[in-house]
Every structure is written in C-alpha cells, then in structure tokens.
Amino acid sequence: MTKQCIEVSPEMRSYVGAGLPLPPAPRDWLLFAFDGLAEAPARVAIVSNAADDGMAGAALVFAVDPAACGRLTGERPVGTGRWYLPTDLRSVALAITDCALPEPARATLRLAKSIELLLALLTRAVAGELVAADSAGELLEGDAMRILAARRMIDENWREKLTLDEIARSCGVNRAKLTRGFRAMFRCSVADALAENRLTRARHMLRETDLAVSSIGYACGYQNNASFTRAFSRRFGMPPSQLRQVAA
C-alpha cells in the first residue's frame, strides 16, 4: 500500500497508509502512531522518533517537532506512552485514513483533519483525559473512560460528601467495577484518592492561612475535628496543630 506523506507544516508531517517504512523525519521529533482504527478499541502511541520501535505498520502516523507541541500545549509536556483513542477522535482519524475524495481535495482534507486531530489529542493528553492502555488492564475502553470520569469527579468535588455509590451512579458503572477498576488504574482506592485531595489541601491551608484547625478540617470535608486530626496524623506523621507550629 502506498503511504502518502502530507506536509502539514515545516513542523509536522502526516503519513497515511500502512505497509511501508516511514520517510525520514528528524530524530528528535515525536511520532503519534494510530492503530486499531478499523475496530475498537483504537489506540495511539506517542514515542520519540529516535526510539525506532516499529511504528511504520500503523495506518496513520504524525511526525511532529516537540517545539510545536510545546507551543500548542502552553509548554506543558506531552508524555510518551500508549493510550486509548476516544471514539470521537477515532472518527477524525478514520476521516483521514478512509477519505474517498479525489486529489487534490483528499490531500487538503487530510491536512485539515490532521491538524484537528493533533490539537484535540494534545489538549486531552495534557489535561489527563486519556486512558493509558497499559493501566486499564482488562477493562474495556468504555469502562476505563468511566473510571477516569470518576477520578475527575473526585479531583474536582472532593470538598463534597461523596459516597462510593454516588460516584458509581454518576459515572455509569457499578460499585464493584468502580472499586476494582479504580485500584487497577490509579493504584489506590476511591477513599484514598478523596483523602489525598482533602489532606493535601488542608496542609496548604495550615501553612498559608490563619484559620482555626477545626475550620480547615470542616472546609476540607471532615465533619469533626477528631476525624480530621486522625486522618492528618496518619498521612503526615504529625497532627495539624503541630505542623502549623513547625511551619510558623
């Protein structure tokens, strides 16, 4: 199969079509290789071009200058690894690989869609909205995305009195799958993730504000000072009042 190279810009090339080695690109560029597009789950691997680990077999590959990625992400780093490709982004990738338009319209569409896909992928990658294919283990793509939604819910709403059943119901997954999947993906329990958010914020408030210890505990989701003190002491090795004295 002929591999078409689309010169998107001086800092990006889009290679469409599997079966042939990639044309040369600078060794320090990043490769975005998309596979499994024909049937879910689709994945994207981001590697250094210098790694040279068999990306040529993918049906769609972007070669991008890391400096361009930096400008597009506000200099937030783009990690290397392998992630599930969300369904909406898979559709954009398929629009590139399966385009039936004649030339030169096909090359023009592929150029525009390559930019669209790269921008959307970088945005979600730096926002932590992609599910790592390795961390998901035996979870199906849909369940992995629901577990990721549960993590976002915890990180954004940790001040509230969240329960396991409420989180599971909000994210469309049953309690048992949430419990197992969360530990598989994040190496901690739902309760651990909630506590880490609350206690990290409490430590910051103890150092940066003059609020009473009991007020800080309540603001961080603890209903009484005793439970706050116990949890804080287990996490940081000293009660909150002592940490405040040390930080003073």
Rank of each mutant, 00 (worst) to 15 (best):
M1C: 08
K3H: 07
K3G: 06
C5D: 11
I6R: 03
E7N: 09
E7S: 12
S9R: 02
S9I: 09
P10K: 07
E11W: 14
S14K: 13
S14C: 15
P21A: 10
P21M: 08
P21I: 06
P21V: 05
L22F: 07
P23E: 03
P26A: 04
W29G: 02
W29Q: 07
F32S: 08
F34T: 11
D35F: 15
G36E: 13
G36C: 15
A38T: 10
E39V: 15
A40C: 04
I46M: 07
I46Y: 10
V47L: 13
S48Y: 06
N49L: 09
D52M: 13
G54M: 11
A56Y: 07
A58M: 15
V61P: 03
V61N: 13
F62L: 15
F62N: 04
D65V: 14
P66F: 01
P66E: 09
A68E: 15
C69Q: 11
G70M: 14
R76T: 13
R82Q: 13
W83T: 01
P86S: 01
T87K: 00
T87D: 03
L89D: 06
R90I: 07
S91C: 05
V92F: 00
L94S: 08
L94R: 07
C99V: 02
L101H: 00
P102G: 01
E103Q: 09
P104L: 02
A105K: 02
R106W: 11
T108N: 08
A112W: 13
K113G: 14
L121K: 00
L121N: 03
T123D: 13
T123S: 10
G128I: 05
G128Q: 08
G128D: 12
L130K: 10
L130T: 12
A132S: 15
D134H: 14
S135T: 13
A136N: 05
E138G: 00
G142R: 06
M145R: 09
R146V: 00
I147T: 04
L148Q: 07
L148I: 11
M153C: 12
D155C: 15
N157I: 11
W158M: 02
L164H: 00
I167W: 03
I167Q: 03
S170L: 02
C171Y: 04
V173F: 01
R175P: 05
R175T: 05
K177W: 02
L178V: 09
F182L: 12
R183Q: 15
M185C: 08
F186L: 08
C188Y: 06
C188N: 10
V190H: 01
A191W: 11
A191D: 14
E196V: 15
N197W: 00
N197Y: 04
R198E: 09
L199E: 06
R201S: 12
R201P: 05
M205G: 01
L206E: 06
L206D: 12
T209K: 01
S214Y: 09
S214L: 07
S215N: 08
I216S: 02
A219G: 11
C220P: 10
C220L: 03
Y222V: 12
Y222L: 03
Q223G: 03
N224I: 02
N225S: 02
N225Q: 06
N225Y: 10
S227G: 01
S227W: 06
F228G: 05
F228E: 07
A231Y: 04
A231M: 03
F236S: 06
S241G: 00
S241F: 07
Q242F: 05
Q245S: 09
V246H: 05
